[in-house]
Structures are given as C-alpha cells and as structure tokens.
Simulated assay, not measured.
Amino acid sequence: MFLPIVVGVDGSGTGLRAVDWAADEAAVRGAPLRLVYASLWERYEGGHLTEDLHKPSEEIMAEDIVESAARRARGRRPDVRVSTAVLPEEPEYALVRESQEASLLVTGARGRSSLAAALLGSVSLTVAGHAHCPTVVVRGDLDDRAGAGAGAHGRVVVGVGEKPAGSAAVRFAFEEARRRGVPVEAVRAWRCPAYETTDHPLPAGEPARLHEQQAVEALEEALRDAPAGVESRRRTVEGRTRTVLVDASRDAGLLVVGARRRPGHFGLQLGRVAHGVLHHSACPVVIVPEPG
C-alpha cells in the first residue's frame, strides 16, 4: 500500500499550484492524495477562492477550502484517489505530524506581503526544517495543462553535499528522475579560500585545481551506486553552493537538496544551502532528510 502524498492547502494561489503539482506527482507514483487544511482560525479570507465559490470572503470556511482544492485535484487527475482533512491546530505542527505517515509532503511558497511573496512563507520554511519525509516547496511557474505530467518539466538537479556517500537526496533524485523519464544532473560547487591564492606555497593556480578535483571526486562518490537506466550528468562549478544551485534551477524541473536531521535538536534543521534555495529557486525544491 502506497503512503499518501500530503498537501497543505490554504486557499492561496501558491497553495493551489501546490495542489496541481502534487496531483501530477500522485498520478506518476500511483499514490493517493491527502489534502490538509489546518488552522486555529475559523475562517480564511482568500481572494482566489472568493472568485471560485462566488461567496464573500467572510463566508469561506475551512471545508470550502479543502473541497475546492479536492475538486481541482480530481479535475486535473481523475485517476488519483483524493481525501481531505480539516485540523483545528497550527499548520506547522499538523503538517509535521502528517509527514510521519506520508511519502511526500507538499506546500506552496507563500509570503504575507508583496515583498515576502518573492520569498518563502513561514509555514513552508518550518515544515521543511522538521518534516519526517521529503518535503516539496512548489516554487516557479508551472504548466497548468492537466495532461502536462511530471516528465514534461525538465531534468532533476541534485546538490551533492559534504557527505556524498549514501546520500538520501541523491537516491531520491534518481528515483524521481526514473519516474519522470528525465536525466539527473549532480552538482557540486567548490571554492578556493582566499588565503590559498596568496600565502599558500603551491604554484599559482594549483590550489584551485585541487579544490576542483576534490569536487569531482565527491561527485564520483555520490554517484558510485547510481541505478542503471537513468541518465546522469556531473557538473562542478566554482562559486557559492546556494548561488550555483539557484542558477541550475532556472531551467530544471526539480531541485533536490539534503538537510541533516540532528537527534535532540529542536531548532530549524535546515542548513544555509537548503535555506537559501528554498527562498530563491526558480523551480520546485525537495528537501530530503539526511541522517545526522
């Protein structure tokens, strides 16, 4: 039995795009879709749903939000089994708990102002930093055609981190690429510390070559057990990892990044790289929990 793909819905435009993405993904995986609305507030004032339901915003209830999202998902992917839940609690806590019995957790990227709209909503950021399963934050423009499918949206890019061997993020990227029928591009950024270019006794240019070679070796280690049947590409780039991955996301279908989970640590468990790409990626981002 397949675990469901859980989507946090809130009636916003970005939340509805998350429903579209998740419905397509559920169809590709053959998994059920679970739409969850969680809030301590009784009502939600959402302009997008006001237009859809032809009701004043004050009459839009939680049930209207999830049912509208369910109709949207069923209309887009009639073959996907859809269920809904309305939970009277803070969305961050509800979605993290839901992630314990989910194959994938999906949210939209939503800010609370015109400036924040370009960044990430607090719910999505908190959930990505604590979820027990891979979390997708749907960013960028999506193809709204019902039949577009996951495979129509380009390669899967995965960032290779400091511990490349046995990376859960790399495994996820290959499995997702296999489902979509697209290549995986494994990216490793490298930088030469400034002091090595001036005070280091090695010949000019040698420190940079050493760091680049280390990046190449990290990619080789990360892809050593890559499954057959999926095209893989390796790319090393000089620069800050966040910047390199955001640049790679501009023509990608999915960006996959690992995040270490440290037992006993109760703060936001996202590294600087994951935090940065969540705010600025041009395509949907998957945060995959990695053992500490």
Results as ranks from 00 to 15, higher is better:
106 V>T: 12
103 S>H: 11
104 L>E: 11
112 R>T: 11
100 Q>M: 14
120 L>N: 00
99 S>Y: 02
123 V>I: 15
113 S>W: 14
108 G>L: 07
110 R>D: 00
89 E>T: 12
128 A>R: 02
84 T>P: 00
98 E>L: 01
96 V>I: 15
88 P>L: 01
103 S>L: 12
127 V>A: 02
128 A>K: 00
101 E>C: 05
125 L>P: 05
123 V>E: 10
83 S>K: 10
91 P>V: 09
100 Q>G: 14
84 T>Q: 00
119 L>I: 03
110 R>P: 01
98 E>G: 04
84 T>F: 00
91 P>Q: 03
113 S>C: 15
121 G>L: 00
105 L>C: 14
130 H>N: 12
105 L>P: 12
123 V>C: 13
86 V>E: 00
109 A>Y: 10
109 A>G: 08
85 A>W: 01
88 P>D: 04
125 L>A: 04
102 A>M: 12
97 R>H: 03
127 V>Q: 03
120 L>V: 03
115 L>P: 05
119 L>C: 03
130 H>C: 07
83 S>A: 13
89 E>I: 05
128 A>M: 06
104 L>D: 11
130 H>K: 02
125 L>T: 07
88 P>H: 03
116 A>P: 10
90 E>V: 13
85 A>L: 03
120 L>S: 03
123 V>F: 13
108 G>I: 06
114 S>N: 06
100 Q>L: 15
115 L>F: 09
101 E>N: 12
105 L>K: 15
126 T>A: 05
112 R>F: 14
119 L>W: 11
99 S>H: 04
127 V>L: 07
88 P>S: 01
124 S>A: 15
122 S>F: 08
118 A>W: 12
107 T>P: 00
117 A>K: 05
113 S>I: 15
100 Q>K: 14
95 L>V: 02
124 S>K: 14
115 L>M: 05
119 L>A: 08
107 T>S: 05
95 L>A: 05
111 G>P: 07
117 A>N: 11
83 S>M: 10
101 E>L: 09
100 Q>A: 14
86 V>C: 02
93 Y>F: 13
113 S>K: 14
84 T>K: 00
95 L>G: 03
124 S>T: 13
104 L>M: 15
90 E>F: 13
109 A>E: 09
92 E>T: 15
108 G>M: 04
99 S>L: 06
118 A>C: 08
125 L>D: 09
83 S>V: 15
90 E>P: 13
102 A>D: 09
122 S>H: 09
103 S>N: 08
118 A>P: 14
100 Q>R: 15
117 A>W: 02
88 P>Y: 02
96 V>A: 13
107 T>D: 00
102 A>N: 08
107 T>W: 03
90 E>L: 13
119 L>T: 03
93 Y>R: 11
97 R>A: 03
127 V>S: 04
121 G>R: 02
92 E>G: 12
91 P>S: 11
